[in-house]
């Protein structure tokens, strides 16, 4: 399949553009998504192409416009709501958790809520505690929601197209440190990546690192370092937390005998705990050491760089954990 290089954010906007062209029920709503193209430039050109009927600048009213998205999704539209910083999802929690996630089930399957909420996540820009959170586990914990976490431009495009076509509410997490990452994306218009399919981003035999979103890059860099020391690491990217491709993860761990799970959210009660537990349940007899996990420190993200950086997982910590796990 022919491919082109593009930025992560361009992959996002291309996915939205194609889906808006393909399906007139798809529309975009969010703060500054219109003429200004979104603060992370993910919506550039969409207002010009589709006009104010389908690209709506929302007031600063997250509960309000997410609520509107739920209602529109229940009545034949397919909204994409951009939440700018994912932290602002917390202002719309009732709409997402009490309404979007439950309305189909509560009404005995009478309706569906095909909406996508895009949120920028993650630390690393000195944005401090209210603009840096990684809230994926909170949403993955809510039955009725789906959670996608792309780690490359290719996955961003394929997964976002799936999200938009999905008949359920999807939380789509974009690490803001990746928006300007470059990568190859297939040419084909209909390139989609189904939910619930993990990808082995690097195959290896000595240990498995399961990593999400920007932590995949961290895991791959750690794998390169460990290769210099003779360790052959496999990196598995679940790509969606809900649904979770348990099979690919478990079979990797059965092969390598070691598992480390890395996610950028605070470590306690997070996605790393869930994935580690599943590995424990399904691959216990194959493990040569306890499953380990790395998340951010259990702290609000501090502002000042010397405080911020040590609190988020990095290559050094991953390398050290892999070595500690083997007692080397």
């Amino acid at each position: 399949m022919p491919e082109r290089e593009m930025l992560f954010r361009e992959a996002i906007s291309e996915a939205m553009r194609e889906e808006m062209q393909r399906d007139s029920s798809v529309f975009l709503i969010g703060e500054d998504v219109g003429p200004s193209g979104g603060i992370f430039k993910c919506c550039e050109g969409l207002f010009e192409q589709f006009g104010p009927q389908r690209v709506l600048d929302a007031p600063i009213a997250e509960a309000g416009y997410i609520g509107l998205s739920v209602g529109a999704a229940m009545t034949q539209m397919r909204p994409i709501a951009e939440l700018m910083f994912g932290d602002f999802a917390l202002l719309a929690m009732d709409q997402i958790v009490n309404q979007a996630a439950k309305i189909r089930y509560m009404t005995g399957g009478q309706c569906k809520v095909p909406m996508t909420i895009r949120l920028a996540m993650g630390a690393g820009r000195s944005s401090a505690a209210q603009h840096s959170q990684s809230l994926q586990s909170i949403f993955a914990h809510v039955p009725g929601l789906k959670v996608a976490m792309p780690s490359t431009p290719r996955d961003a495009k394929g997964l976002l197209k799936s999200a938009i076509r999905d008949d359920n509410p999807v939380l789509f997490f974009e690490d803001k440190m990746m928006y300007n990452d470059k990568g190859a994306v297939p040419e084909e218009d209909d390139f989609i990546i189904p939910f619930g399919q993990a990808e082995v981003k690097r195959s290896g035999t000595d240990a498995t690192i399961v990593a999400t979103s920007s932590m995949v890059t961290v895991a791959l860099a750690a794998a390169d370092k460990l290769a210099e020391e003779g360790l052959d690491i496999e990196v598995v990217d679940p790509r969606t937390l809900m649904p979770l491709d348990e099979e690919t993860i478990v079979s990797s761990v059965r092969k390598t005998g070691y598992a480390l799970v890395v996610d950028e959210a605070p470590q306690s009660y997070g996605a790393t705990a869930e994935i580690a537990a599943r590995i424990g349940e399904k691959a216990f007899d194959y493990l040569d050491a306890p499953v380990m996990r790395i998340g951010a420190a259990d702290l609000p993200i501090p502002f000042s760089p010397p405080l911020e950086f040590p609190t988020i997982p990095d290559v050094e910590r991953v390398v050290r954990a892999i070595k500690d796990q083997r007692g080397s």
């Binding site: 401090a128 603009h131 609000p300 501090p302 502002f303 000042s304 760089p305």
Partner: peptide, 16 residues
Amino acid sequence: MGKEAGYCRGKGGSMH
């Protein structure tokens, strides 16, 4: 500037 002598000991920054 994210310094320890700041009002929030560098934890908050301009917005906090």
